[in-house]
């Protein structure tokens, strides 16, 4: 086992990393706010009805929703910086 090939010397953290992170935060924050206003607010009531009427279906839908959002958010943040033309810091 040798040294981890991905290991980076902490002293070599580039300023670019912090800059990219800030850009990612701003874009991500904007998109997330939009998602929150458009989707989550309208989902609240139908999900509550499902919870009251069919707990088994609610459990399945819950798992699908959380997995789906996890996958989508990961993809979203992955592509944000490429989209704005900035080199990723990993």
């Amino acid at each position: 086992m040798g040294q981890d090939k991905n290991q980076i010397n902490p002293k070599q953290i580039p300023k670019r990393l912090v800059f990219n992170l800030i850009i990612e935060f701003i874009i991500y924050g904007g998109l997330v706010t939009l998602y929150f206003l458009v989707i989550l607010r309208y989902l609240n009531e139908p999900i509550k009805n499902l919870f009251d009427n069919n707990l088994t279906f609610y459990a399945i839908v819950s798992l699908i929703l959380i997995v789906l959002q996890g996958v989508v958010l990961e993809r979203l943040t992955f592509y944000i910086l490429d989209w704005v033309g900035l080199k990723r810091f990993e």
Binding site: L21, V32, A59, S62, I66
Partner: peptide, 28 residues
């Protein structure tokens, strides 16, 4: 999540909102 949902112990809307912050935190 599945077993607790079946017992009515999961507020999925709350989890989805938490995940919005957790997704970026986890990557950092």
């Amino acid at each position: 999540t599945l077993t607790h949902s079946l017992k009515g112990n999961v507020d999925i809307m709350m989890a989805l909102v938490m995940l919005l912050g957790a997704a970026i935190g986890a990557q950092i």
